[in-house]
Nucleic acid binder design. Structure first.
Lengths: 265, 265
DNA sequence: AATTAAGTTCCAGATAGTGGAACTATCTAT
DNA sequence: ATAGATAGTTCCACTATCTGGAACTTAATT
């Protein structure tokens, strides 16, 4: 199911459910509050249909309708997600190693997983965290311009990588963002050779990062770790220095994964 | 779902969507990984139906099917929830006041909202946070045995309160948990009089807490703040000392809410 | 290798979702 | 304050989607 075959079009919908979740996403990802009519324009569905769907979503607690008729993401999403987060094996196994990596580098550590063409951050260790912390967890960023993302791409089997590149929507976030497929493919080759990936201000100006991939016992990619810091403090040589540490942290998580299932392999 | 109301039956489903979300919740709230057959037993739906529903949920990224045929909550939940969290107005407005309250007391601060009979925690400020932090955010706890929860109950209009008490499922978490409705009603009366609520080891043994309600401009309850600490360090006198601080913090958030909409009232 | 359990697919029938249009409430400008 | 316009809600015949029993395939167990 996962990999997309060459010509076969992926079935576009999951019926009712797909439409419903699309609405939740529409509301959740929107920058500003949306009123009924705003959604009507964006979703392109007939009035009656949309109204009922939104009604259902509100009743289920996935959306909420506030006093000034704006739809907002619902609290139930938080409840469900917090359980998802708490139960993640990868996160649990990786946590101590993220902390160790933070202690060694003093910079922000991320743990991310690949979902379609995006990296979703599962965990983060940061020193000067005020209240911001959880804000990053769950954040989705494009794979082609982040450290963990590029490490992920390089870790995929070629067929799967090609499929992803086909559907990738390249956007220049900074002047360093790689927006040409051949350039990205060369970069991926380099990452495969080196065993780690850099993000040289490709997603956010002034932010650099080194990342390494984590594999499970079947050598399939399960996630990535990274060290991230501001460019004024983190030179490219520094990234080179950290690269072995990041790779070692990734290795340590892999051993943890192997150990968890017992030594039978 | 929990209990049955007096006579008026709440419409039991939102059709297809309700069943789908119920499955997500089933999987997310389960302590251990569930295989297809486990879910089959728990959900009480025919094989074919269940299989298709799960298939749709996996395709949508709300669930994931891992290598050993276990269904797990999907990453997409995290993505959606992180946006819900980031966009919450109450959270944004309250954040500085939570911090201030933490600075004043040195103990853990929670911000929670009421959803049905549960309190869902929206934010938290804590000193010795290792990696645990986000674990609490999104956590759902029963209203009748938590500080914020009881403050919430006391803040509701009587009709709504009665309706909630009717469907509430009292469980003794500790030996101090209030499990008798009349006792809880007396407690709620006291909370209304005092303007703040205590949790005297009612949810977790060894944990005490003071909480106050936050209202919007129409005097409807929108959330609650609390200070929580271990019983060995936090005596009941200490809770009394903190009560005015907690109320002041709640007041400050209310002023923030009023200010946001401009001075027109 | 045989047996049992777990997981997947199929299809006629029934349910729940669809969407156009009519209706009501709310906002805006005069 | 009133008219006009815009936003939000309700209704119902139609039909697309979901249902669920049973047959089938694959994996685990003895």
């Amino acid at each position: 199911m996962t990999a997309v075959s060459t010509s076969e079009t992926v079935s576009p919908s999951t019926g009712t459910l797909g439409k419903a979740i699309a609405l939740v996403e529409l509301v959740a990802l929107s920058e500003r509050p949306l009123r009924f009519t705003d959604i009507l324009d964006l979703a392109g569905q007939p009035r009656g249909t949309l109204h009922r769907q939104l009604g259902h979503l509100v009743e289920e607690g996935l959306l909420e309708l506030n006093a000034d008729h704006c739809y907002e993401p619902g609290l139930r999403l938080l409840k469900l997600a917090s359980r998802a987060w708490g139960r993640s094996d990868l996160r649990r196994l990786a946590a101590p190693h993220l902390q160790a990596l933070h202690d060694a580098t003093g910079e922000t550590i991320h743990l991310g997983m690949l979902r379609d063409t995006e990296i979703i951050y599962l965990d983060k260790v940061e020193s000067r965290q005020a209240v911001r912390m959880a804000s990053q967890i769950g954040r989705a960023s494009p794979a082609y311009c982040t450290g963990v993302g590029k490490a992920a791409l390089a870790a995929l089997p070629q067929s799967r990588l090609d499929a992803l590149l086909d559907v990738m929507d390249f956007r220049p976030f900074t002047q360093h963002t790689i927006v040409a497929r051949p350039v990205l493919e060369a970069e991926i080759a380099a990452i495969r050779k080196a065993g780690h990936a850099f993000d040289r201000e490709e997603h956010e100006a002034g932010i650099r990062c080194v990342a390494a991939a984590i594999f499970d016992q079947e050598r399939t990619f399960v996630g990535g770790v990274s060290v991230t810091g501001p460019a004024y403090r983190v030179g490219e040589e520094m990234l080179d220095t950290w690269a072995p540490l990041v790779r070692a942290a990734a290795e340590a998580v892999m051993e943890e994964i192997a150990a968890r299932l017992g030594p039978k392999g």
